[in-house]
Design a protein around this nucleic acid. Structure first.
Lengths: 107, 107
DNA sequence: TTGACGTATAACCACAGAGATATATGTTCG
DNA sequence: CGAACATATATCTCTGTGGTTATACGTCAA
């Protein structure tokens, strides 16, 4: 069962795509043309990346005349923070167990 | 320039590999054999994944006789939390700017 | 309506990498 | 030493996907 985090991790794994997302986070809403001009890849490539980001819920698009404006949807990062915290939590609880064990051994 | 987060994201993007890492987080140190038995893939595949995880600093190995024990290195997740927080931070600061703007417009 | 523009889609290519099997390396035991 | 075991490495295959160019679609201006 590919868990819910899967799409998120895979979407953010590509450097070009992550750069696009970061740019949207830093500088807010951008048109496809603006994003393309600094991405180092072709416009169709950027559109494809934006499609993947949108499918993962990381961006939303807004049509205005013949341009499309994209913006970051930070809420979609929540599962990423949850996962990280969960992993850290497991680590800590095992650490606590170890502490307990050592304390008990100490008596 | 592929930033430092790159290896981390790419390492965690594969579901099988992430499952192995999660298992090490949840259940602590494990041998290759134990990890293989529940991974659904062959032992060489598991070894390769462990190699990638190790290269990314996410696990460490401990040799004991003919077995190798692997354990999670949670510290390696710090950049992931940093990145997430940074992105959220950008979002918030832009939100604050918007708030400011609205307040100023309100006067 | 025609043409320029902005973006999306189609079709194709190239390569990374995840998987398998076979085998090498190293370890314990008889 | 020789055999069984635990893991790592070598080699190959094949799918997924990121990139390209060409083109279709929708919008604005004249």
């Amino acid at each position: 069962m590919p868990d819910a985090y899967d799409m998120l991790f895979r979407t953010l794994a590509d450097p070009t795509r992550r750069a696009i997302f970061e740019r949207l986070c830093r500088q807010g809403e951008q048109t496809v043309g603006a994003l393309t001009s600094q991405s180092g890849v072709s416009q169709p490539a950027v559109s494809k990346h934006l499609g993947v980001l949108k499918h993962a819920g990381l961006v939303r698009d807004r049509h205005e005349g013949r341009q499309t404006h994209y913006s970051a949807q930070l809420g979609a990062l929540a599962p990423l923070m949850d996962w990280t915290r969960e992993m850290a939590g497991f680590w800590e609880s095992r650490f606590d167990d170890l502490e307990d064990l050592l304390k008990r051994m100490d008596q």
